Simulated scan of single mutants.
Amino acid sequence: MKHSIAGLFAGIGGLERGLARAGHETTLLCENDPAASAVLQRRFDIAHHDDVRSLKSLPKQTTLVVAGFPCQDLSQAGKTAGIEGARSGLVGEVVRLIEAQRTPYVLLENVPFMLQLSAGRAMDVIASAFEHLGYKWAYRVVDSRAFGLPQRRRRVYFLASLVDDPRTVLFADEAGEQAERGDFRSVACGFYWTEGIRGLGWAVDAIPTIKGGSALGIPSPPAIVLPDGTVGTPDLRDAERLQGFPIDWTKPAETVARRSSRWKLVGNAVSVRAAEWIGKRMAKPGEIGDFPTAPMTPAKSWPTAAWNVGGGRMRVEASEWPVQRTYQSLEGFLIHPLSPLSEKATAGFLSRAERGGLRFPPEFLRTLRNHLAGMRDTGPRSSRAA
């Protein structure tokens, strides 16, 4: 089945681009960020609306509503105000539009921290709303590494349907949890230089999740340590590729905002390849896998996978790797020079790491100290990823 899509909170079009690659068509895009809107208007020849709150109705032909609704109030990197927060609470606008026009399908995307924050209240509010409207629903946390991209990006994909079983989309595939691909010094590793006390954001042969920016709105791309000891941050164009977009997909944003704003757009985007996987399964549903299940009971958080298709809410034991596409190593993936991690950033991370009690891979801190010494001796230089 080919779907007619209304894209709400469209960002730079990750969901819509991925679904288009699976054969579906978007007829409406709604986004209020000027920089993101500039990208959408350049990359899609589609009707555009600038504020979901003033959108009165969906196009009549809509069969699928998609929304990567704002995560700032749900993210560990944000204010964690929860589903009632001014930004993330906008998901209520999706429900308003669905109440007026019961589209056959709804697909939502957000951060997995929503499953923990306030004992999963955000997911409870969303699930309850769709249950009230008569929808069957399923959700699953999926890691974008499953689609071959070296970025550890875990996201919740929630699919609700009035007409079919959403499990035939989200639970028709299962590759099982995957082992780490090497270790420090044998492969490139990623970490967040803005951390060091409470967490490391460590990723082997991958980078940790690209973020929209710091709490102050400052771009903060993750750092990469190559096997030869090089320490740097990826080029913005490689960050776009790590999200599944072509190089310079976000360049139109520079017509209305600074270049640095593109990091926020990339960090807030939905993985194109994950959306394409969902889109292909929506076009051709599969058999539901044999997943262990159990009734949901009150807990401190919601599980990483669950469904309610009429028999009550069930927790599901499913991996975050529904498929295992050919994996691109991080070092081989990068095609642009790394920017050396600055002296200030390196020194700040080392200071936090030495005060904290985190356990690091052997030789990691020594590698950073060598990098810091080299920066102080020679000043910043660009380095080419091998």
Rank of each mutant, 00 (worst) to 15 (best):
K280W: 00
R42F: 00
N32L: 10
F184K: 10
E343W: 02
F44A: 08
M282H: 04
K136E: 11
Q101T: 02
A299H: 03
I224T: 04
V256Y: 05
F147H: 02
S128L: 09
P208D: 03
A175R: 09
A81K: 13
D73G: 06
L159P: 09
Q243D: 04
R140I: 00
I83A: 13
R384G: 01
G18P: 07
G286T: 04
L58N: 05
F291H: 11
G379R: 03
P166N: 08
S260I: 12
R167T: 10
T27C: 10
V231R: 05
A385V: 10
T367R: 01
T103H: 04
S260L: 14
R241M: 11
R181A: 07
P234L: 01
Q101W: 01
F171G: 05
G348P: 07
G199W: 11
L107Q: 07
L358D: 02
G312H: 03
G68K: 03
W277Y: 03
G229F: 03
S351R: 15
L265C: 08
A67H: 10
G379L: 02
R53Q: 13
R145W: 05
G199S: 14
P362V: 10
V94G: 07
K56Q: 11
G212A: 11
Q324S: 15
T62Y: 01
P227L: 10
V66L: 03
A223L: 00
G229N: 07
K264N: 14
F245N: 12
R273M: 13
N308F: 02
F184E: 00
R325G: 08
P380F: 05
S329C: 09
F333A: 06
N32Y: 11
W321T: 12
G82L: 13
R366I: 12
P222T: 13
G212K: 04
H24L: 00
R53D: 12
K211D: 14
K264I: 07
A283P: 08
F360V: 07
S161R: 12
S144Y: 02
A172N: 02
R369D: 13
D205H: 00
R381H: 15
P59F: 02
F69G: 03
E177P: 07
P112N: 07
A22F: 06
R167I: 06
D173S: 09
H132C: 12
A223E: 06
S161F: 12
K211Y: 07
A306R: 11
L170V: 04
C189V: 15
M375C: 14
T194A: 12
A77H: 13
V272F: 04
T326Q: 11
G68W: 01
G190S: 08
S382Y: 08
I12F: 01
R43K: 15
G217Y: 06
R273P: 14
L97N: 00
Y157E: 01
V39A: 03
Y192D: 15
A269L: 02
V111C: 08
A215M: 02
R87M: 06
D143H: 03
E254V: 15
T27N: 05
A129T: 04
Q101A: 11
G18E: 00
E109Q: 08
A318F: 08
R313T: 13
L338W: 05
Q328S: 13
S37K: 06
A345N: 15
D228N: 15
D290S: 15
